[in-house]
Amino acid sequence: MLKSQKIPISQIHVSAARRKTLHPPTVRLIAESIDKNGLQTPIQVRHDGKRYVLVDGLHRLEALKWLGETTVDSYLVDTSRH
């Protein structure tokens, strides 16, 4: 079972391609939900040796930034192929 960990938002890289999928009205709705209920599902990141890279949760991440948060609950996933 994955265990979430707090990661500084400033250390999470979001690719330009992924950033293009951002939908600001969705960010606002998610921010309202997080403000009321807290973050229900941690985002997913991988570590590339230098930084964390967002795997899943762009709108949640942006909502937390909008709310002024500096850390985010995250699942660290291994995306390497064995």
Rank of each mutant, 00 (worst) to 15 (best):
H13C: 12
V14H: 09
S15L: 14
S15T: 14
A16N: 15
A16K: 14
A16W: 13
A17E: 15
A17D: 15
A17K: 15
A17M: 15
R18E: 15
R18F: 12
R18N: 15
R19G: 09
K20P: 10
K20E: 15
T21N: 12
T21C: 09
L22N: 04
L22K: 02
L22Q: 05
L22H: 00
H23I: 13
H23V: 13
P24A: 09
P24L: 09
P25K: 11
P25D: 13
T26I: 14
T26G: 11
V27R: 13
V27M: 14
L29M: 15
L29T: 14
I30A: 12
I30K: 12
A31W: 11
E32P: 08
E32W: 11
E32N: 15
E32L: 14
E32R: 13
S33R: 13
S33L: 13
D35N: 12
D35Q: 13
N37K: 03
G38D: 03
L39T: 01
Q40I: 06
Q40C: 03
Q40E: 10
P42Q: 04
P42N: 06
I43Q: 03
I43K: 02
Q44V: 05
Q44R: 06
Q44H: 05
Q44F: 05
R46I: 04
R46A: 08
H47D: 06
H47I: 04
H47Q: 06
H47Y: 11
D48E: 10
G49Q: 06
K50S: 12
R51V: 08
R51A: 11
Y52M: 09
Y52G: 07
Y52F: 14
Y52W: 14
V55W: 07
V55A: 12
V55E: 14
V55I: 14
D56Y: 08
D56P: 09
G57M: 10
L58Y: 07
H59C: 06
R60W: 02
R60L: 04
L61V: 03
L61H: 00
L61F: 05
L61I: 02
L61Y: 01
E62K: 00
A63V: 03
K65P: 00
K65C: 05
W66Y: 08
W66L: 12
L67M: 08
L67C: 05
G68F: 08
G68H: 07
G68R: 06
E69Y: 10
E69I: 03
T70H: 09
T70S: 12
T71G: 02
T71H: 10
T71A: 07
V72G: 02
V72E: 04
V72P: 02
V72C: 04
D73L: 06
D73Q: 07
D73E: 11
D73K: 01
S74M: 02
S74R: 00
Y75A: 02
Y75C: 01
Y75K: 00
Y75E: 04
Y75R: 00
L76W: 00
L76P: 00
V77K: 01
D78C: 04
D78L: 04
D78G: 02
T79F: 03
T79S: 05
T79I: 08
T79W: 04
S80N: 08
S80K: 07
S80W: 06
S80C: 05
